[in-house]
Amino acid sequence: MAAASEFMNNVQDTPLTIAGKRYHSRLLVGSGKYKDLEETRLATEASGAEIITVAIRRTNIGQNPDEPSLLEVISPEKYTLLPNTAGCFTAQDAVRTCRLARELLDGHNLVKLEVLGDEKTLFPDVTATLEAAEILVKDDFDVMVYTNDDPLIAKRLEELGCAAVMPLAAPIGSGLGIRNPYNILTIVENANVPILVDAGVGTASDAAVAMELGCDGILMNTAIAAAQHPVLMASAMKKAIEGGREAFLAGRMPRKRFASASSPIDGIIA
């Protein structure tokens, strides 16, 4: 009799592959909003994530030179760093930030592109995003691009040569969950590059829902960092993503309006 584990090995998932590199974890995490670097380190470790986003900002001139830096706890030797263009409101600023990031990380060319259009919603400026994506792809960057949940724009970004397309599920930092699952589903079904939900996940069940839709992965930050216990939430997200992925591969049962007994009718004593 075959063991369940043996059976599971036969239905093994193909790993997430971004720009030719394979990853075991489908959870990508941000490194912002933590209480301190120690919490960042612990939550990142608990998440099992291999790709970690970082922001590129001006060095504080005159600050204590011995102050520990993020890259000491999230080291480029251990993790794949994903510099983002968060806070950029023009294509030009986003492209500049990516070029600085590439210099900072010794030629590493994987970047997360986001060009924001509005401070209140942090929704992407889609036309500026398309413009920046085109420039960056031509400049040999591997671009993981944050966008809205518009299937046509997602396809357009793929056609421009982006390495992964990352639609929002809800506004950045809102924790509102997967607000438009049908659009996410359409984006996933149309795609030939990895689709990762970026932004909007609030708790583990949201992550599972996104994975059950067939997303290749999820990028999150606030859902972990703003939890009461970030390290525990990081672990919960890891499990939810694994569970959601397996459920997607397993294929869920059809929904029925009325009941269907799980125990046989025959042999009831009454």
Binding site: T53, A55, T59, I61, L70
Partner: peptide
């Protein structure tokens, strides 16, 4: 001149 480094971000 701009001098930048990496910090926490999502």
């Amino acid at each position: 001149i701009e001098i930048v480094h990496a910090i926490g971000g999502g």
